[in-house]
């Protein structure tokens, strides 16, 4: 599913160059559920952004689902994000003043799909929020908001879901419920990569990739 080969990423902050990733190579097979762990500033988010086609590596090769991604145009990358990837963020990133249903419909607008509300409703049902479709984010609890975000990530039937600290803003009970949901989705065949600082979260996954200073420490 994900094949990374000697990926480096160097940020330029003014004159100084910050090497965030220094030669990452790894593979994530279709249907896997993987956790990425590591200290703050080790480059986890940077790696997720590259995997998610939001950012381009400074050097190295990245194949997603067999497609060489590093050379694609911005528009092609937008299409890949839309069709193949679903994002879940730590801070939910739902549109305020917009209903749960409309939030979930958003990716469908950009793929030009028909019967959007029906598909969005299905996605909300699959995260157990069918009774909350008309609510705005401000009227929902944190866990519910994150479920809406997961429904949004699901709605275009992606092959890969990327979640950068999805439980970072939630309490333990809610986090565990959410991890069960992720596990369910993984059992449906969706590949899941998530970043976490919590070992009990990582315990829900099949394996953990440990990163330190932009390099893979343990991949097991």
């Amino acid at each position: 599913m994900v094949e990374l080969e000697s990926i480096t990423k160097v940020y330029k902050a003014g004159r100084t160059e910050v090497p965030a990733l220094r030669g990452i190579s790894c593979r994530i097979k279709p249907g896997e559920m993987v956790a990425i762990m590591g200290p703050s500033g080790s480059g986890k988010s940077t790696l997720m952004n590259i995997i998610g086609c939001l950012d381009k590596a400074t050097s190295g090769q990245y194949r997603l689902d067999g497609i060489e991604v590093s050379k694609l145009s911005d528009n092609k990358l937008a299409e890949i994000r839309n069709k193949k990837i679903g994002f879940v963020f730590q801070s939910f990133n739902l549109l305020p003043r917009t209903t749960a249903l409309a939030n979930v419909e958003l990716p469908l607008i950009y793929s030009g799909s028909g019967n959007r509300s029906q598909r969005a409703l299905q996605a909300l049902e699959s995260v157990g929020l069918a009774h909350r479709i008309k609510h705005r984010p401000s009227e929902l609890a944190g866990g519910e908001q994150q479920r809406v975000a997961i429904a949004r990530a699901l709605v275009n039937d992606p092959a890969l879901i990327l979640a950068d600290e999805p439980t970072g803003n939630l309490d333990t009970t809610t986090s565990k419920e959410l991890m069960l949901l992720f596990k369910q989705l993984n059992q449906r065949g969706i590949t899941i990569v998530l970043v976490t600082h919590e070992p009990y979260i990582a315990a829900y996954t099949q394996r953990t990739i440990r990163i330190r200073d932009g390099q893979i420490e343990v991949s097991g």
Partner: peptide
Amino acid sequence: TREIGLRKAVGAKRRD
């Protein structure tokens, strides 16, 4: 700005 970032993340192109 965040809304724009999110729209781009879920597949909006520049043109959109």
